[in-house]
Design a protein around this nucleic acid. Structure first.
Lengths: 208, 208, 208, 208
DNA sequence: TATGAATGAGCATTCATTCAT
DNA sequence: CATGAATGAATGCTCATTCAT
């Protein structure tokens, strides 16, 4: 069945909205919210400035939509789908490899760059917490609890350990951005890096 | 010797400059660079707007001065002064306790809130890296190397481990801010939290 | 004869045009010309924004059409049709009663609210003068002249008296709007009000 | 005593504020509130656009200040100061002459042109009513009551008569603006016009 | 040196108008 | 003819910076 006129129109607006969101993410993380201009976002999206306002009522709502949309959840949570099939080293490797894509994985960088805006706005904090932090933390906690029950991991305070490990990955991303090329993290393969970290983490939580 | 008129004058200007820097730190971290206004900073500092420009040539240079001045280095590096006298658990407890002052330690929060501004500006990145990251990392690496040489720690890639541990603390701070009151981190004493983290870290890096 | 398709189409467009004019009058007098938006007019008229431009070439032309169309002439001039049959008190009562419908008579309020727009635009002044002021003044002058000739009225400068009486009614409308509920005009029946005014006009204020 | 620095500064700001108010009155009545631009007002006042906002927080507040300031009260109420010394024809002549300054008296024209803006905004209505309408009406009512008590005027409903006469003057102003040069009101001296109106008001139109 | 009024460039947002469907 | 998304010029307002006092 050919798409009706109605459908085609809707598809166009969905594409247009995506263009705008993509552009906004880029510009917001390049400049920060306040220094980003709607004019620049429009230009980046290839639309007129006024068009932005047919899709989002204000610059701030556009930021909210960006945070809502570009949650890292999706790609990150995919890892958990196959958790059952993995032993713990494989799982950790997967998590680390996925997150260690610092450089190329622009999505993460974007979010780190926007972190300041998020942290300053309770609404954005709530969104980010609900859509990113909570789901990741919950799944990870459950995973740790299972492994502990199976006797593979030592009995742990999963709440703390989860956050410590999550924080470690997040913090490494920050340090990489801050240290730039001079960081020793840059002089090793992602493979090696992940392996080192896994070693560190495993020997810590593993039952001896 | 009583201070000469000259000296008194200089002391006044130094105090004035400090007032301005304090005010700027507050406002910049509350609002972010772009949304902070020179008017608000002046008010917070208790001086006229024009006075700011007798001390700093522009708003941006004021931000640079803030980043240069309020490096967390000072309090953090103090820990290392007595490193030689501590065994490793005591040392780690000290580090963790010091850094775990998330909530009350406004200084850290300020820097986290300003991280976005720093990450976006190569000059600020360079300053922050040189004054904060590098010294901390170097001292910590050296410490780990010593301990490894003494046989207390397993032979580690100290570059990675240093950053992993540093990142962990940084990341925990971020997560605390993001999760707010709902975080399990908030429902335990800092003592317990530090102990849990030490346990995690120690069992990982400790020679078995 | 049943209406041809052609005729039906024309009738529909005439109705549509009327809808738009009605809506425009409402919105223009509610908001004033500049603050009225074509979007609001379209919504009020129940048509799409673009449709307005099939009927009127621009927002300003729409205002001109509104002024051209909603002249108060019609209802007002009806009074004069039966002038011959009335004695002067009856006539004045009719005029006053008709015009004293301040509150309910939205038409008048609309025009008063639009007066600012009209007064600022020579084209609108010309239209309003030609279609409203001049006809009313002319008829009224002629009436006064007749009455004077018949000896019922004193020999008057009809030009001035006409404008004085017309102005009085117009000015009363303005004062009613300005004073609102606190006006003594609001605390009497329209009957009484008309009677008082008639008395004033007929006899003046002087003790004879 | 020479003015202190403080006083000189204050005097400058008062002058500046007046400049702005004068300019705003001109532009608002020339263009109406919505079509007046802050840029044009600033230019007319000979200051930078930003300067407007050092004196008035918004364009709307500037309008409010204009309405508050340029009340016609002052010049108008002066007439009443010498009321006691005048017999009624002299008084009426004074009122009429004062108000009949249609053309030259820009103040009045301004207010008539702004009437639309005032009528649309309850706050402005309240201000105008309190500062202009009420004082004028009250004084005029009292005058009429006195004259009635002295037996010079017939016993009248002073509330209505006051408003009828006030409205007449106001309405005549409107008609003059609307009819422009073609009005018979323009082809007679103000003297004659005032005399005609006085005759009408004093004696009515009826043949006695 | 301290002040704070003046400045004007810069930006978010609105809205009349166009035009492809 | 009807529609409504796209357009971009126009405008109120903010705020870093300057400078006369």
């Amino acid at each position: 069945m050919a798409p009706t006129r109605q459908e085609r129109k809707e598809s166009i607006t969905r594409i247009r909205e995506q263009q705008i969101l993509d552009a906004a993410l880029k510009v917001f993380s390049r400049k920060g919210f306040a220094e980003a201009t709607t004019s620049e976002i429009a230009q980046e999206a290839g639309v007129a400035e006024g068009t932005l306002y047919n899709y989002f009522p204000s610059k701030r709502e556009l930021l909210v939509a960006v945070v809502k949309t570009f949650v890292m959840t999706e790609s990150f949570l995919k890892i958990f789908e196959h958790v059952g099939e993995m032993d713990y080293p494989a799982f950790l490797m997967a998590v680390l490899n996925n997150r260690m894509d610092f450089v190329e994985d622009e999505g993460d960088n974007h979010m780190v760059l926007l972190m300041g805006e998020i942290l300053r706005d309770p609404e954005l904090i709530a969104i980010y917490d609900r859509q990113v932090i909570k789901p990741v933390m919950n799944r990870m906690e459950k995973y740790l609890e299972n492994k502990a029950a199976e006797g593979e991991f030592r009995p742990l305070n999963t709440g703390v350990v989860t956050r410590a490990l999550g924080g470690m990955v997040l913090g490494l991303l920050l340090l990489t951005l801050l240290e730039g090329e001079s960081s020793p993290l840059k002089s090793m393969s992602r493979q090696t890096l992940a392996a080192e970290m896994m070693e560190l983490v495993m020997k810590g939580i593993q039952q001896h």
